[in-house]
Design a protein around this nucleic acid. Structure first.
Lengths: 219, 219
DNA sequence: CCTACCGATCGGTAGG
DNA sequence: CCTACCGATCGGTAGG
């Protein structure tokens, strides 16, 4: 895994900055707070209604702005979608890395896969979720350059699963080629966005164990 | 499984019929041909661009009509989406039933699951596919009444998997509860729409075997 | 099915 | 960030 990501192929010029000398950190925090709010509300609406059916006016209203104001933070609706996906994926990659680093050095392949599945459920269904489901279900709304930009991060995220899957296959605990198993497993997990309900009886820990046994259970 | 489906909760008045006495079967065939063409092109566009981003003008142009003409066959864009999903799901349910009926009477649970998976891949990725992927990825674009209408058929389709999954669980070849396994398995299969490419090296038969072994393989 | 059209909505911008 | 606004597009319809 590269320590630094390549340049962003879909990077765009930043929007107008506020005039005058930028005030201290308070100002910066506030600014990035508003930007972040826009991304969070946009992600929520994109997931419920879809990107194309969500208007920039919906998003503005959701954060208490007037209709033209989101364009102060993002140069276009498309750039806002891209920010949600790209920055969401960067966050997911970072937290996945942390989850793997937290494992004991002697952790076996089952433990590694369990940690990956548990973390993925958290990203998809946990309290701080939202950006990654948008990425999964709005991929077609990106331009080609934007897809490239998100793929840079997404491919790294997915590649991190291969060592565990290969080890499981080698020891006979995975009954498909690692490459195909990865596609099926991601599908099974990603689809949970469609049916999982927070108020239901399932816990993310319980789902993790069931998934682990179904895909890589012994006997 | 009921022999007859309940009434369609989202059924709407048929669009205007052509004036004059309906001519014989040729006329009828031609009419239903145009209607079908609209559904097929609409499904293709809905899948590529999404429902909201597809205009009724796009659809009209794809079948060589002028912009107002689709509304002669469907009372609204929404009704066209619903027809794609509902009729697509009805066709899938019928062909799934046929696939099960074709099994030898002594077929075991593995053979039943294999037939179900193979048929599902065909529906999702085969040459005649298109309607079901739209249903899977545009669910949120339906009204509540429409969701009810499609669910009537979809629930029956999915329920047909339970006996095979329960039998496999009973004999120790399924390492999760049948209910949760069904959700994961459908996710794994449905996600293939995202990555399967017809020109690639994978065949639907090959994918079926890999899925079967991954989910319900012995040892 | 086509022609001709309407009312509403939408992304985006200039200027402050 | 707001105000005021524009040009383009879109679903849908009347009438034939």
């Amino acid at each position: 895994m590269p320590e630094t990501l390549a340049q962003d192929p879909a990077a765009e010029a930043a929007p107008r900055r506020p005039r005058g000398r930028p005030r201290k950190s308070a100002q910066h925090l506030d600014e990035s707070g508003r930007r972040r709010e826009l991304m969070e509300q946009a992600a929520r609406l994109f997931l419920v209604k879809g990107y194309a059916a969500t208007t920039t006016r919906d998003i503005a209203a959701a954060v208490g702005m007037h209709s033209g104001s989101p364009f102060y933070y993002f140069k276009s609706k498309s750039a806002l979608l891209y920010a949600v996906m790209r920055e969401g994926m960067e966050g997911a990659l970072a937290s996945q890395q942390q989850a793997l680093d937290k494992l004991a050095p002697e952790a076996d392949a089952h433990a590694r896969l369990r940690a990956l599945i548990r973390h993925h459920f958290d990203i998809l269904l946990g309290p701080a979720s939202g950006f990654i489901p948008v990425m999964l279900y709005e991929w077609r709304s990106l331009t080609a350059a934007q897809k490239k930009g998100v793929s840079q991060v997404k491919d790294t995220y997915e590649a991190a699963w291969m060592p565990a899957l290969e080890a499981l296959a080698a020891q006979g605990d995975l009954r498909a080629s690692p490459a195909v198993a990865r596609l099926f497993i991601f599908g099974a997990l990603n689809w949970s966005v469609q049916w999982f309900r927070v108020r239901g009886s399932q816990t993310l820990d319980g789902l993790t164990e069931q998934a682990l046994h179904l895909f890589a259970g012994k006997a």
